[in-house]
Computed example of a mutant assay.
Amino acid sequence: MNYTLHQLQIYLKICELQSITRASEELHLTQPAVSIQLKNFQDQFPIPLTEVVGRQLYVTQFGEEIARAAEKIIKEVHEINYKTLAYQGKLSGRLKISVVSTGKYVMPYFISEFMTKNDGVELLMDVTNKSMVVRSLELNEVDFSLVSVLPKNLKVNCLELMPNKLFYVSSNKLFKSKKVTKKQLFEEVPLIYREEGSATRNAMETFIKKNNFNINKKMELTSNEAVKQAVLSGLGCSIMPLIGIKNELMNNELDIIPVKGLPITTKWNLIWLKSKKLSPAAFALLDYLNENKNNIINERFAWVNKF
């Protein structure tokens, strides 16, 4: 056996994506280069690692076993690199953070300076909906999660970061006057929802149920960005987090329509399992946030107080 770390990394990416083309794109390599490395890696084994059925590449059972072993090897290599940095007096390690989709407008600002100061720390940040974020935390796949609603079924520690406000939002061309009736807002104009499992959707549905609104026209989209574009186009209205529509409000492309009971206010919370054994990098991030979060809010998010 004479495989290289480079081959292991390429093979793992192919297994993850089940596509040589997509793997080459993510690795910023040409497709022929990835194919050659896969062939060279395969030549060292008497049993097929992958197979192609039709045009789809599949990983064989043996190939999955090799992928798991390769993942362990790569992890050990990372550990060697981290230990080297630690002996040099540098903070090192890998931080894994899962973030609810709207949290992508928040979390980068809270960690950017920390990452700049600690270049030995690697960051893996997954952006998805609330149910998937909570799931990854429950399975101990991440160090931290950023959520606006705390999970009820998990024992977690929590660091509160900043408020999260949700307003009724429309295109600036949809209503000639901001003084519109509730019937217009919730019965005549289509209301655009996030997908099932989204914390924003749960907040919307709770508000609508509490006020006994009858929603006659309803649409569902799978990201906050998609909802925003739909509202901008005049396709409908929505109850949206303020944090994701700053530019559109400043450019007068979107309007906040006053509605009794709104905004809905929750909190952005960084959470982690109480049973989690945090790494030195994770502890360092918590120390940094406790010391600097107020300054970050004042510098980066003071604009939210205008609404």
Rank of each mutant, 00 (worst) to 15 (best):
S101C: 15
E141Q: 14
F45T: 01
L185M: 12
V304M: 14
K209M: 12
V169H: 13
D119N: 15
S148Q: 13
G89L: 11
K96P: 01
W268V: 00
E122A: 08
H78C: 03
E299R: 09
T222K: 12
R22K: 15
S35F: 08
K75V: 03
K173C: 02
S35L: 05
K267H: 11
R55A: 06
R55T: 09
N202L: 13
E248A: 06
E25T: 05
T128E: 14
Y58F: 15
S177P: 07
K13G: 01
V149I: 11
N140W: 05
S170F: 09
S171P: 07
K104Q: 15
K306G: 00
E299G: 04
T50Q: 06
V52Y: 10
M240G: 01
A203T: 00
V34Y: 08
N140L: 06
E299H: 13
I66S: 01
L273M: 14
R22A: 04
L57N: 00
Y11N: 01
V106P: 07
V133W: 13
K274L: 00
L254M: 11
L242Q: 15
G93K: 03
G93M: 10
R55Q: 13
T206A: 07
P258S: 05
V156K: 06
L91D: 11
L85K: 15
K228G: 07
S171G: 11
A86R: 14
F213R: 08
N298S: 12
S98V: 14
L85Y: 04
V147P: 06
N140Q: 15
N224W: 04
E196T: 05
L270N: 06
K209D: 13
S136N: 10
V52P: 01
A302S: 10
E64T: 01
L273K: 13
D126M: 11
S275G: 02
E71W: 04
Q61C: 00
F110K: 10
F144Q: 04
P108S: 04
L146W: 07
T84N: 12
N212Y: 07
L161N: 06
E253K: 15
V34S: 08
E113P: 00
S279H: 08
L242F: 03
I73D: 02
Q37H: 11
N295A: 15
M240S: 02
A284C: 11
K178V: 14
